[in-house]
Amino acid sequence: MPFSIVTLVKGRKKQLENMLESIRHSSMTPDEVIIVWMEPEKPESRVEDSSLPIKQIYLNDGNLPLSKARNLGFYHTTSETVIFLDVDCLCSPTLLENLTTKLNEGIITSAPARYLPFIPLTGDYTEVEQDACVHPKRTSLPTETLLPYKKFWSLVFALTKNTFDKIGGFDENFTGYGGEDTDFAERFNSKGYGFMFVGDEVLHQYHHKYTPPLNYLREIVENANYFYSKHRYFPMYTWLQTFCKMGYITFDKQRHIFKIMSLPKQKDMDSTLSTLPY
């Protein structure tokens, strides 16, 4: 079955090179890999790989335009089946095969993840998979059966072009990080699409992160308020509560929105830098 892969990247060239290596070791290889760089074109934002058909696109708007970048990547694909794969992912050998062969018009396929505490030197899944761990707060979800739509995540998923078009793609009114994937799940559920995990996995390569994600505070608040205007509940609510307790935001009960009171300084963000792999 012909299929395309879409991935987004900003500043994670080594993770991207490892991801591409894992694709080369897969039981099925894609007809094309669409790489959307969310930064200007320069030597650091380009990869060469003669063994894979790669198309590299640049989207530089100064932010982290996840919705816009996913849509842009999708509209550059030529296959009827599309896999969205996070740049931090390493594919298990039969992942791509299972994602595509288990797919049908009413189903979106996905897969669970385990987490690596480092950026590996290699993208060969078999060499590093013994070092990956399970997220302690993520309960094991069954495979090959429909899952609650709110369990959807955008780390890895496959669908047909027709399904993506009927859902309407990702809402580009979400700017930056947060909420756009939960909105996507709300909309595919409302149209009767289901999703399930296949019996494979990805390994998530380590990257710096903040817990809570103070570096994305503005985007999370703005996107959460926009999400509420569409779906009448707030996503990322634990983070919003934490931001409130830290004094950065407050909840306006009259307008039913979260308001930013102040933005964290770099030293505040540094104090929440997490070394955990998940």
Rank of each mutant, 00 (worst) to 15 (best):
L72R: 12
G73F: 04
G73V: 01
G73T: 07
F74G: 02
F74V: 04
F74S: 01
Y75D: 10
Y75Q: 07
H76D: 06
H76Y: 10
T78P: 06
T78S: 15
S79Q: 05
S79Y: 02
E80V: 00
E80C: 05
T81F: 06
T81M: 09
T81V: 14
V82G: 10
I83W: 04
F84W: 00
L85H: 02
L85V: 02
L85S: 06
D86I: 00
D86C: 07
D86R: 09
V87M: 07
D88N: 11
D88R: 08
D88E: 14
C89L: 05
C89Y: 04
C89H: 09
C91P: 01
C91N: 06
S92V: 02
S92P: 07
S92D: 11
S92L: 05
S92R: 07
P93Y: 05
P93D: 03
T94I: 13
T94W: 12
L95N: 14
L95P: 15
L96N: 08
L96I: 09
L96T: 12
L96K: 13
E97T: 15
E97S: 15
E97G: 13
E97A: 14
L99A: 13
L99S: 04
T100G: 08
T100I: 15
T101D: 10
T101Y: 00
K102P: 00
K102L: 11
K102D: 13
L103I: 08
L103Q: 08
L103R: 04
L103T: 09
N104M: 01
E105L: 10
G106F: 04
G106R: 09
I107W: 02
I108S: 01
I108C: 04
I108L: 11
T109E: 01
S110P: 03
A111Y: 09
A111P: 12
A111H: 06
A111K: 09
A111L: 11
P112S: 11
P112R: 13
A113C: 13
R114P: 10
R114G: 00
Y115N: 01
L116P: 00
L116E: 12
P117E: 01
P117I: 10
F118T: 12
F118L: 12
F118V: 14
F118D: 10
P120W: 14
P120K: 14
L121I: 07
L121T: 12
L121Y: 05
T122W: 05
T122P: 08
T122H: 06
G123L: 04
G123M: 07
G123A: 07
G123N: 08
G123R: 08
